[in-house]
Amino acid sequence: MMKTDFRREPLHIAILAGLLILGFFLPDWMRFLLQTALAGGLVALGVALQMRAGLVNFGQGLYYVLGGYAVGMLAAKAGITDVFLLLIAAIAIATVAGVVLGLLLSRYREIFYAMLSLAVSMILYGLLVKAAWLGSTDGFNIPAVTYLGWTPDRTVRPDVYYITTAVLTVLACLATARYLTSGAGMLCEAVAENEIRLEYLGASSRKVAFIAIVVAAALSGLGGGLFAMSTGHVDPLMTNWTTSGGFVFVALLAGRGSTIAPVIGFFLLELVRTYALDFAPNAWQMILGSVMLAVILLLPNGLWSLTEWRRKA
């Protein structure tokens, strides 16, 4: 089991912030790819957090879609377009869902946790597909968001959205790092390794798991909200098992050594995907699959293990 030390996190997050500032000057299409990848990366970070406690969530898309639909419904149906209100609502709704489901799910481990979380997310998928007033599988579009009464003009909108996403991603990573260095965060690994011993020491493994679930839910809600704002469209695919499986995969691929690993990992994977698609529109999944397989085989601890290896050498 790889031991992780999160005291170096502020440095990692500073590096991420630096990269995101450089990212501002990328070509438009790649910056947009980065922007949506940051949103997805937050969800993958949520999955990675739970993995530290030995919980593999195959239904993290549930909180992602809740965040996305919260933004979408408030903006498109209720006419609230202030980005701060929208994103707070996205986080709040996902957190509430995390608390309610966490009460149930924190009792379960291993395959039971994975299957239950998958089941709940697919129930929501089924409900959304049935909801004709929400556009069923077509989903619905979301109008442009405003900033405290200011509507960014079409020409600056991409810049403003990117900055919003980048700043919030960095803040979310900082908050997550703070959580990981707290008691509740550090005990996660103990839950994965030996729950009985943890209980003897006087800690509640259920409580530790519960907090991890809720923190992951909040992160994913924010990710969903940012994704909805970026693409201007939400649909139920956000909570389909294929989407959730993708987040689990990124969490594995990126490694759990740092909060910034899933965020950067998600972007790299998206980059491989879009170039594979451009290079071989008929066989892009095969290229993507080969890359994933190669990473898993060559770097069993994820991409992040490259940085550890360098330090040792």
């Binding site: 299409w29 947009f32 790819l33 949506t36 693409t231 998206e270 995907r273 879009t274 698609l277 451009d278």
Partner: peptide, 21 residues
């Protein structure tokens, strides 16, 4: 012509078609 697969993120790939290709 540049063919692209619709079975991927439509918004992202549309931008790629226009901006990149």
């Amino acid at each position: 012509a540049t063919f692209s697969d619709e079975a991927s993120d439509a918004v992202v790939e549309y931008r790629n078609l226009v901006d990149r290709n």
